[in-house]
Amino acid sequence: MTQQSQKTQAFADHYVDQLSSWAKITTRPLFGAVALYRQDHVFAMAWHGGIYFKVDDDSRKKYDAAGSHALGYESEGEERALKSYWEVPADVVEDHEQLQRWAERAYRAAVKSAKG
């Protein structure tokens, strides 16, 4: 495991701990990020020091209003974005109850997405 992978896993583990009273969460590496799962649904991604939650059309508006952005990465020299995952705003990350509410919304978006 690379040093960056170890840091990302440690960061993901921090959020697993933060959300442990909300739900049982597992993690797995996924394309250089670490995916956070609840009941086999990916609802969050830890990536380069940020935590990104799954969004849908309704919840994306809250992230946009908070000045957030989609998970961005570079592939073959081009900037890309995983538009279904947006960075959790700092004020949400710092508020345990609010973090759990946003995680629940992200989980519901993941379940809804899986149902198609």
Rank of each mutant, 00 (worst) to 15 (best):
Y37P: 04
Q18Y: 06
L99D: 06
W102G: 03
R28F: 01
G32V: 03
A81F: 14
R101H: 09
W102M: 12
T26M: 08
Y85F: 15
R28L: 09
V92Y: 05
S21I: 06
G50Y: 01
H48Q: 15
S21L: 08
K61D: 11
A106F: 05
S75G: 04
S113W: 15
V34E: 06
V111M: 09
R38T: 10
Q3T: 14
F11P: 00
T27C: 05
S84A: 09
A114L: 07
V34K: 09
Q4D: 10
Q6D: 14
D57C: 02
S20R: 14
M1Y: 11
A10M: 05
Q6F: 07
A114E: 11
Y107F: 15
Y63F: 15
E79K: 15
E79S: 14
V16E: 03
M45E: 13
K83L: 13
S84D: 06
L99M: 05
K83F: 09
L71E: 08
R80W: 00
A46N: 06
E74F: 06
T26I: 03
W22V: 04
S84F: 03
D91S: 11
A33M: 12
A70N: 01
D95M: 09
A114C: 01
G72K: 15
V93M: 09
V92K: 07
V92E: 07
L99I: 07
Y37T: 03
W22Q: 12
H69V: 00
D57N: 12
V42K: 02
S20F: 05
D58Y: 01
R105I: 14
V88I: 10
V111Y: 10
W102P: 00
V42W: 07
V92P: 13
E94G: 03
E78T: 08
P29T: 09
Q98L: 15
F53L: 12
Y107M: 05
H69K: 04
A114N: 11
A35Y: 04
A23L: 04
D58G: 00
K61A: 09
D91F: 15
E104D: 10
R38P: 04
K61V: 14
Y37G: 02
S75H: 11
Y63V: 02
V55K: 01
A46P: 00
L82C: 10
Q39M: 11
K7R: 10
Y85S: 01
T8E: 11
G49D: 12
Y73Q: 08
D40P: 00
Q6A: 13
E79N: 14
S113V: 08
A44S: 10
G49A: 02
V111G: 03
K62P: 00
L82S: 10
S5Q: 15
D56R: 00
D13W: 02
K62H: 12
V88S: 05
D17R: 09
R80E: 11
V34D: 00
V93R: 15
I25L: 07
F53K: 02
S75N: 05
A70T: 05
D56Y: 00
T8A: 04
K54W: 04
